[in-house]
């Protein structure tokens, strides 16, 4: 009995002393922190991805509270709804920002881009990039080691073993930009999601001259400039043998897409083109074929997003005019 009593008293005393010390310390060394920082941090997703450009969610919350304005600040993970909540906590107006998504600008799958050498180094794009031009003749394209996949915290980008290229899961992608940073070849671009998730972009970053690029990859941009000419909105620029579509200017008219001789321009998540009944059979075949390419692409990228139309039906319709299909299909 005595023993138990001693144990209880002594432990209790130690506890009491410790509690007093803790209490004094917490009062004496307390650092004042704006309570709103914690409130803001609460509504943030706490993924600590760094996509906002700040070190983690708390860093972002801190910046939001201290800045006094939310202009130019966006949590890519939470998007507009979360920013609205942050705005209401701080009594500020939420900055406007378009939803973005990561876009892989290389379509050089194994069949499009024949391998000329075999890489045997460490499985890392950064190392492969430092080693040489890559397994194919294209020194700009995807290396396929998956640094972007490793960098993604949202399970939104995966290697497709068939094509050897990464594919973005648009539902999960938060456009945090981690993959873009990880890619040593700067293939991945953060682009606006676009209306109804529709986007038109040049799926190539090869700056070699046309002949070299064409030899290296069937779907490379050869810098021919046809798309630049056809664009009614001056959205396409050609620099260093490479076309680029400015998302801010592009109105998604898709005029450039069938024009590209290499099939490098990709229109994503569009419904397949309807075959227009026109008198000129030549143009029709081209358009049909182009539509087929679109349909095929929508199929291959498996964009199970907002594509409500059924591309398969369209494909079966398209099957007849097998005349002059663009190169991209081959």
């Amino acid at each position: 009995m005595n023993l138990i009593l001693i144990a209880v008293i002594s432990l209790g005393a130690i506890g009491l002393v410790a509690a007093v010390i803790l209490f004094v310390a917490s009062k004496k060394f307390a650092v004042y922190e704006d309570p709103r920082i914690a409130q803001v941090a609460e509504v943030l997703p706490q993924a600590n991805c760094g996509g906002c450009g700040y070190p983690g969610c708390n860093g972002f919350a801190d910046a939001c509270v201290k800045a006094g304005s939310l202009e130019g600040k966006l949590c890519p993970v939470g998007g507009q709804p979360v920013m609205a909540k942050v705005a209401s906590i701080l009594g500020l107006e939420a900055g406007t920002a378009e939803p973005m998504v990561a876009v892989v600008r290389c379509n050089g799958s194994c069949e499009h881009r024949p391998h000329t050498t075999q890489y045997d180094g460490a499985v890392s794009c950064a190392v492969a990039h430092a080693t040489y031009g890559g397994e194919t003749g294209c020194a700009y394209g995807c290396l396929g080691c998956g640094d972007c996949v490793a960098a993604c915290q949202f399970d939104a980008i995966h290697m497709n073993p068939e094509t050897g290229l990464p594919e973005v899961d648009e539902e999960k992608c938060t456009a945090c930009g981690a993959c873009k940073k990880a890619c040593p070849r700067n293939i991945i671009e953060i682009r606006p999601k676009g209306k109804n998730n529709r986007r038109v972009y040049v799926s190539c970053v090869n700056k070699d001259k046309g002949a070299i690029a064409r030899k290296a990859c069937e779907v490379s941009c050869i810098g021919c400039g046809k798309c630049v000419k056809v664009c009614p909105f001056e959205a396409i620029t050609l620099e260093n043998n490479l076309a680029y579509i400015d998302p801010a200017k592009c109105r998604l008219c898709r005029k450039c897409e069938p024009e590209c001789p290499q099939g490098t321009i990709i229109a994503k998540n569009f419904p397949p083109r309807k075959p227009k009944v026109e008198s000129d059979p030549g143009t029709e075949t081209v358009k049909l074929a182009a539509a087929k390419v679109v349909a095929l692409k929508t199929e291959t990228v498996k964009a199970e997003l907002s594509v409500t139309e059924t591309p398969k039906v369209e494909i079966s319709k398209m099957e007849e005019p097998k005349g002059k299909t663009p190169k991209a299909e081959a």
């Binding site: 391998h115 000329t116 050498t117 075999q118 890489y119 045997d120 180094g121 080693t131 040489y132 397994e135």
Partner: peptide
């Protein structure tokens, strides 16, 4: 016959 193997030294 073979593709050349590339790796760093």
């Amino acid at each position: 016959a073979n593709k050349l193997i590339i790796s760093l030294s």
